[in-house]
Amino acid sequence: MSKSELPEEETQEKYLVPGLERGLRLLCEFSRQDKTLSAPELARRLDVPRSTVFRLLATLERMGFVERTDGGRDYRLGMSVLRLGFEYLASLELTEIGRPLLERLRDDIGYSCNLVVRDGRSIVYVAKSVTQTAFASHVNVGTRLPAHATVLGRVLLEDLSLPELRVLYPEEHLEVFSSNTPKTVVELFDMVQKDKERGYVLQEGFFETSISTIAAPVRDHSGNVVAAMGATIPSPHIETSQLDDIVRRVRETAGELSRLLDHAPEKSGAKVVNMWRE
């Protein structure tokens, strides 16, 4: 029997790479129901030695396909899974759905609006809608900025516990970009918890002294923050009479995008809090 006459399954089996297959099977074990899994549990599910699973996890973690959670004991999918099909996944779930909302929000408030996701310690701009003004932003789709030092980044860190933040930022002192940048993980955690309780962030000159930002979280079906929606105001101040309306519109638009991602929002009676002097 010639090679061309071999059964298709037998031909395919010859070219399989066992290590790659195991790695992909490991990634497929994560789901909506099993967002985090331990190495022993993965070894049991895959029916392979724990030492093999630890090697697979170490490789996938280094490449960003998985990341540690719960103090380092469990694992969850990392941002590299999203990047594998970024043009499709990000565009369909965030950019494609979010762009019309960004454009409407921009028209309603008269300021440029952005949508960002977090990749490790950085935020990544995945969509933006700009106004036709003299203000020229250096931020484009794909731009990366430090999460801990930006208003949008603070929104994206809301779901992390203090131990998880310590894993993400193991250094004693955080890199400072302005006088507003938190200098330690504890300071960052306290700041983010206040943001979470408030339901949005409103602050001037946090990353750049001449720019003010209003941001709100976008959540998925599980309630996790998957993106941050923000409005960029090219001024260190906004008229007090405008604040309530802009904050409301940003929060409502972020909430609308969340609902399109199957999130069931909780009722909230949070009031607008002026943070310009905090």
Rank of each mutant, 00 (worst) to 15 (best):
R83E: 15
Y88G: 09
A90S: 15
A90R: 01
E93D: 02
L94S: 06
T95V: 15
E96F: 11
E96S: 08
R99Y: 12
R99G: 02
R99Q: 15
L101Y: 10
D107E: 15
I109G: 04
Y111P: 03
N114T: 12
D119N: 00
G120Q: 03
G120Y: 00
I123W: 01
S129N: 04
S129I: 07
F135M: 08
S137R: 05
H138M: 12
N140G: 02
G142N: 10
T143N: 05
T143M: 05
R144G: 04
P146K: 01
P146D: 03
A147F: 05
H148P: 05
A149M: 01
T150P: 02
V151S: 12
V155G: 08
L156D: 03
E158Q: 13
S161A: 06
L162G: 04
P163F: 07
L165M: 12
P170M: 09
E171F: 07
E171M: 14
E172N: 03
F177W: 15
S178G: 01
P182D: 09
K183N: 10
T184H: 07
T184A: 08
E187I: 02
L188T: 06
F189T: 03
D190T: 06
D190F: 07
M191C: 12
M191Q: 13
M191W: 11
V192S: 07
D195Q: 00
K196Q: 14
K196T: 14
R198Q: 15
F206A: 01
F207H: 13
F207T: 04
E208P: 03
T209H: 14
S210E: 15
I211Y: 01
S212V: 05
I214V: 14
I214H: 02
A216W: 09
P217L: 00
V218S: 06
V218D: 05
N224Y: 09
V225D: 04
A227Q: 02
A227H: 07
M229G: 06
